[in-house]
Write a protein that binds this DNA or RNA. Structure first.
Length: 805
RNA sequence: GCGGGCGUGGCGGAAUGGUAGACGCGUGGGACUUAGAAUCCCAUGGGGACACCCGUGAGAGUUCGAAUCUCUCCGCCCGCACCA
């Protein structure tokens, strides 16, 4: 008998059997206990599956396998997110058409995912680049267009000079392009937007009820960035009919507003300048336009110039000067602020630099009214504020808003950090936006029956940087007829953002073969919302926010009966190596293929899960993986050696250990604490190896509990134990709480908080008996002063604490 | 600057108010072997006058009892960042 553990042979054998028997496919229409187990589908890069993907998918797959053994009909689909700038840029670099490139990458990814041993329902795989898929991406665009949620308008937008396209706000990271790290500039362009800001309140408020990792909820709350305050109008001195609107969260400090500041791009700047200031103002505006976003934001030193104009502070009637400065952002609020240097640090800096008056209008705690040496930004009591004097900040805010509304100089207002979603891209590799421009009929949506608008198969797909997509250079694509009047018309040549493709893929999985609908109403009702979604934190405000928005909008349009797509979302951690992030430049990237070859998928899966808590990630060590490999070897040999034995009765200790292990592993797997689940299995194995005899049931339990982690090895051992195929369809073991109760316990005795004795006692003793036992111990008595009065704290079966003080 | 997380042996980590360091790596010793590999067994936080003391980033506090709760400080990681 060959008893060597040969992962390569075992894994190949069972992968083939799983495929032949289709055990991971689900009868979607008739499933009794549907459980939708989702993970973030990958971007099929040329480098192949990253170990980060392996980590993410393994953790989610273990969850799916566990749910299946709990009797759920688990649907665990997989797909490929293959449109977008990343693969397009790579294709340009290599001079290979992205279509060719992606096909090869997808093939490679599928092989690797199969080697990983995931329980994927491959018959429902989707590829976002498939016309049968993006046809429905275009369909969603059209529904939004018809509902007025998709609009084309001119706006200042982020422009990546290297990718030669616009970017959504979420794709600009500290002033740089998310994809290529180039510095992003601003351009005023006509673009397509999805009006996600209309949903800002719902996107924010729904978070309270979602079972999601807190990190993600916090990130979304911050990104949406709702703030409540007022919009106030300051009339111009020169022309009382004109006013500057400002947004403030502190209307209570309006009496302290000693000047106004406009963003350099503000439309009223032209009206304000005087012959004396004109040259300086124009120079500043020009300079601001040239500076990159990063430069403007980076420097803490504030710059600005006086426009020459004055406004009236409507609260105290004083004339105050109007400045322009680039610390005020055109894109936020109204692009203008009332500067309250006494109570805002930025305004304080600016006022100090340009010698502007600083007035205190909020007294600090204990009525502190001293002269300010720095901005006082906390709350307090209003002073020097006319009718608001003596009111605490919160009340003064309300009073100020009321007063503004009564006098018609402003109103309550709420604003958001969230911007509308810019979805058009001047690129080739994406779904064409299904719109036609007609001189007579205007902007017309492509009729649904004409979808998909196919992406033409062309040789030259390199972006030109003219602000137009490469598609604009293809007359056969551009020239068309108007669907409405049949006259000559031009197609939209921009493609949609890659994040639109991935904002609905999980709706498509169950309906992947449906040619009539984007998603079948019955299947969708049965399978959605998703039961469990696991993915990376990096998508906290990109994918996860867009997805929620798309579902909410589809719900409002009557296509979905839920508004939140993911009931439960868990963010997994990040794998590092040697304490630092893996990157090509550091040369510390783990190539999964190497480890599949050397140890097998079961070992790599288990090791990745053993490195640390799944939600926190871990440190990959080439030596550490040996420990898991040894563990699986020991499991293999123990089971093989004892498989033939009859179901002999095991010792009570082993029985209790078995039940304890079932409980620990079950609870840990439920809580994604895979590292401690494996530790419990190791302890169990150690216990079985030490035991004089091992019963059949002990081995079966070991195999069942290990099955989600090491699916191939356990399948092999399940067969060796004479059980019927498949271990992955067997029932998860249960434990008996009565068996867990130990007959003897180790009871710890503390004297004044220090551990002095461990007593082996029968379980369930009352306090009097425990005291008696403790006071008989020399180790305890030694620390008890003569004649001291003693106090006792008793924790049954755990501890007795004796206090002498 | 704001928000979130983290800080425990040589290393990854366990313990979320009750035996600090489970489990694994590494290391030392032993068994088996002609030898090695593999495997198995024992030991492994520091100190020590060995029936003890110290120890969870630092300091204080609450408690019979704190890695765990509270406050202050230091350090690291992640997200956002002149958001009015």
């Amino acid at each position: 008998m060959n008893t060597t553990y040969d992962p390569t042979a075992i894994e190949r054998k069972w992968q083939q059997r799983w495929q032949e028997t289709g055990i991971y496919e689900v009868d979607l229409a008739h499933a009794k206990q549907p459980y939708y187990n989702l993970m973030m589908f990958p971007y099929p890069s040329a480098e192949g599956l990253h170990v980060g993907n392996v980590y993410a998918f393994t953790g989610a797959d273990i969850h799916g396998r566990y749910q299946a053994m709990r009797g759920k009909d688990v649907f665990e689909p997989m797909g490929f997110d293959a449109f977008g700038i990343h693969s397009e840029n790579f294709a340009i670099k290599r001079g290979i058409h992205p279509k060719t490139l992606i096909a090869g990458n997808v093939r490679h990814f599928r092989e690797q995912l199969t080697r990983l041993g995931g329980r994927f329902a491959w018959s429902h795989a989707v590829e976002t680049t498939d016309p049968d898929y993006y046809r429905w991406t275009q369909w969603i665009f059209l529904q939004f267009f018809k509902a007025g949620l998709a609009q084309r308008r001119k706006a200042p937008v982020n422009w990546c000079p290297s990718c030669k396209t616009v970017l959504a706000n979420e794709q600009v990271i500290s002033g740089r392009c998310e994809r290529c790290d180039s510095e992003v500039g601003q351009r005023e362009l006509e673009q397509w937007f999805f009006d996600i800001t209309r949903y800002a309140d719902r996107l924010l408020d729904n978070l309270d009820h979602l079972d999601w990792s807190d990190v993600i909820k916090t990130a979304q709350r911050n990104w949406i960035g709702r703030s409540d305050g007022a919009e106030l109008r300051f009339a111009l001195v020169k022309d009382q009919a004109k006013a500057i609107s400002v947004f403030t969260t502190r209307p209570d400090t309006a009496f302290g507003a000693t000047f106004l500041v406009l963003a350099p791009e503000h439309p009223l700047v032209g009206d304000l300048k005087t012959p004396e200031t004109e040259a300086e103002v124009e120079a500043y505006v020009r300079q601001a336009a040239e500076r990159s976003q990063e430069d403007r934001v980076g420097g803490q030193d504030k710059t600005g110039v006086f426009t020459g104009g004055y406004a009236v502070n409507p609260f105290n009637g004083k004339q105050i000067p109007i400045y322009i400065a680039d610390y005020v952002l055109y894109g936020y609020g109204t692009g203008a602020i009332m500067a309250v240097p006494g109570h805002d640090a930025r305004d304080f800096d600016f006022a100090t630099k340009y010698g502007l008056p600083i007035v205190r209008v909020v007294a600090g705690p204990d009525g502190d009214r001293s002269t300010l040496t720095a901005a006082y930004e906390d709350t307090g009591t209003a002073i020097a504020s006319g009718p608001f004097d003596g009111l605490p900040t919160a009340e003064a805010k309300e009073a100020a808003i009321r007063l503004a509304e009564e006098r018609g100089i402003g109103q309550r207002h709420r604003t958001y950090h969230l911007r509308n979603w810019l979805i058009s891209r001047q690129r080739y590799w994406g779904p064409p936006i299904p719109v036609v421009y007609c001189d007579r009929c205007g902007t017309v949506g492509v009729p649904e029956e004409e979808l998909p608008v196919l992406l033409p198969d062309v040789q030259d797909f390199v972006p030109k940087g003219t602000g137009e997509s490469p598609l604009a250079a293809i007359p056969s694509f551009v020239e068309t007829t108007c669907p409405s009047c049949h006259g000559p018309a031009r197609r939209e040549t921009d493609v949609s953002d890659n994040f639109l493709d991935s904002a609905w893929y999980f709706l498509r999985y169950p309906s992947s073969h449906d040619e009539e609908h984007a998603f079948d109403p019955d299947l969708t009702r049965k399978w959605l919302p998703v039961d469990s979604y696991i993915g990376g934190k990096e998508h906290a405000v990109l994918h996860l926010l867009y997805t929620r928005f798309v579902c909410m909008a589809l719900h409002d349009l009557g296509y979905l009966d839920f508004e939140e797509p993911f009931e439960r979302f868990r963010a997994h951690g990040v794998i590092v190596r040697g304490g630092t992030k893996m990157s090509k430049s550091r040369g510390n990237v783990v190539n999964p293929d190497e480890f599949f070859d050397r140890y097998g998928a079961d070992t790599l899966r288990s090791y990745l899960m053993f490195m640390g808590p799944y939600e926190e990630g871990g440190d990959f060590s080439d030596q550490g993986i040996e420990g898991i490999y040894r563990f699986l070897n020991r499991v293999y040999h123990l089971v093989r050696k004892n498989a033939g034995q009859s179901a002999s009765a095991a010792s009570p200790d082993v029985v209790r250990l078995r039940h304890q292990t079932i409980r620990r592993v079950t609870e840990d797997v439920e809580g994604l604490k895979y590292n401690t689940a494996l530790a419990a299995l190791m302890e169990y194995l150690n216990g079985l190896q030490r035991a004089s005899s091992v019963a059949r049931e002990d081995l079966q339990t070991l195999v069942l509990l290990l099955a989600p982690f090491a699916p191939h090895l356990t399948e092999e051992l399940w067969q060796a134990l004479g059980q019927s195929y498949s271990v992955h369809q067997a029932a998860w073991p249960t434990y008996d709480a009565d068996v867990l109760v130990a007959k003897t316990v180790t009871l710890v005795v503390q004297v004044d908080g220090k551990l002095r004795e461990r007593l082996q006692l029968p379980a369930g003793l009352d306090e009097a008996a425990v005291r008696e036992a403790a006071l008989h111990s020399d180790a305890v008595r030694r620390f008890l002063p003569d004649g001291a009065s003693l106090r006792f704290v008793h924790v049954p079966d755990r501890l007795l604490s004796i206090v002498t003080r």
